[in-house]
Design a protein around this nucleic acid. Structure first.
Length: 413
DNA sequence: TCTGGGGTCCTAGGACCC
DNA sequence: TCTGGGGTCCTAGGACCC
């Protein structure tokens, strides 16, 4: 069956939500992200502000210079989450296959829903009407046979439009667009492509795959696929709405003023560690690798990581690890602009428990190493011996109620 | 211009193992 | 020891997205 993916993108989301809470903002140049003289960047700008060249990710101070009459407001994440949830609920009434890709955009799989919702354009308009009714917010919709093309087409439909790319027309739709329109092509890749004379997606599609692969590595290969409209690998291929645990959890803080006050810096690290630990517990995840991020007054940024001998979700252990890293990494003189705490190598409960049982896992690992060693030295003749050993060990493993089947260590070489 | 905070994925070198 | 070729894990950094 022909896949039909719809990408929903809320228009000027943060600004529009703020306008709901303060209608006086409507039509005015509005910048969401903080005060005009604060350290920080623009999270969202109203269309009136964009006319002055203000755009998201721009420093607030720059935005203030470009558009002195702009109204600067703080962001309200709780409000955005609330409205994001409403959008999700609406989409969920159209199809169970819904995925919020970020706070203001979603994918919905409408494959095979024409009996229910009518043809693609009709379905899209019903969707948009339902969203407006539930939120009073505008959005743009892109429909296509892949996530990639759906996303690009919703962008082309802005503001407040609907665009459907017919199956088979993907490459024709993409060809005249700037390469920058392809998700994943940022400033650097764009510059690299411009350097070799490639400006539009069509130029990219004409290139040899092997040339792109040689020039841009694995990413080049994906790029070639994308230029032709394919969901080239990774997340783009995944089923819509598949739940996935986060791969990392982090918090960071930029100081209002750079600081070289050890006590203050370590207090912030402690607080960030607590925030990370709390979120780990919320997700019921355990981190094995703790990473410090440190940015100095010259904006020089380093990261230092340490892997623990067991995974944790405890404030104390995370703070301890990150403080050790900090004391090694910071000379105590250069003022610090930013500190961050990052938890990676995340494990679920089961993985965590088998690791807790340390002498047992150490013995197991040792045993498997011996098995592999025997196999390497004595070849095929030893296979049955290895099998027997494994079977025996699996029994032992099962005795541990927290260790689930299928969790044995990986085979050696 | 003076550069947030939360993520994902990729690369590359080195340690270590067999 | 002049020296191979898998593989995994760890760490650091960077591009990119919203």
């Amino acid at each position: 069956m022909q896949r039909l993916i719809c990408h929903v993108d809320m228009d000027a989301f943060f600004v529009s939500v703020e306008e709901l809470f303060d209608p006086a903002l409507r039509g005015k140049p509005v910048v969401v992200g903080g005060k005009r003289d604060q350290r920080g960047v623009v999270a969202a700008a109203s269309y009136a502000a964009r006319k002055f060249g203000v755009h998201s990710a721009m420093p607030l101070r720059t935005a203030s210079q470009l558009c002195p009459q702009a109204i600067f407001v703080d962001g309200h994440p709780e409000r955005y989450r609330e409205y994001s949830g409403r959008v999700f609920d609406v989409l969920n009434t159209f199809s169970p296959l819904v995925e919020m890709a970020s706070i203001d955009e979603a994918y919905i799989d409408l494959t095979g829903t024409d009996r229910l919702h009518g043809p693609p354009m009709k379905a899209a308009h019903s969707l948009r009407t339902a969203i407006v009714r539930a939120t009073n917010l505008k959005c743009s919709l892109g429909l296509a046979s892949s996530r990639l093309v759906a996303k690009v087409s919703s962008d082309q439909a802005k503001p407040s439009g609907v665009l459907y790319i017919l199956p088979g027309q993907e490459a024709r739709f993409l060809a005249p667009l700037d390469v920058r329109k392809i998700p994943g092509v940022g400033k650097k890749t764009e510059a690299a492509l411009h350097k070799i004379g490639i400006r539009r997606v069509g130029d990219l599609a004409r290139l040899d795959e092997s040339f792109l692969a040689a020039r841009f590595g694995r990413w080049g290969l994906a790029l070639a696929g994308k230029a032709r409209g394919a969901d080239a690998g990774g997340w783009f291929d995944a089923e819509i709405g598949a739940h996935e645990d986060p791969k990392s959890i982090s918090h960071e803080h930029t100081f209002g003023q750079d600081s070289a006050d050890t006590a203050q810096l370590e207090t912030v690290l402690l607080r960030l560690s607590e925030m990370v630990a709390r979120r780990l517990r919320e997700h019921e995840l355990y981190a094995r690798t703790i990473q410090l991020k440190l940015r100095d007054e010259d904006f020089l940024t380093i990261t230092r990581a340490a892997s623990l001998d067991h995974a944790t979700q405890l404030d104390r252990e995370i703070a301890g690890a990150v403080t050790r890293l900090f004391r090694e990494a910071w000379d105590g003189r250069k003022p610090v602009r930013l500190l961050g705490v990052h938890a990676g190598n995340l494990q679920t409960f089961e993985g965590q428990m088998s690791l807790l049982d340390e002498p047992e896992t150490a013995r197991l690992r040792q045993a498997f190493r011996s098995v592999d060693h025997i196999r390497n030295r004595f070849g095929e003749a030893s296979v049955s011996l290895a099998k027997t050993l494994r079977a025996g060990l699996r029994e032992r493993v099962h005795e541990n109620p927290f260790d689930l089947p299928g969790k044995q260590p990986k085979k050696g070489s």
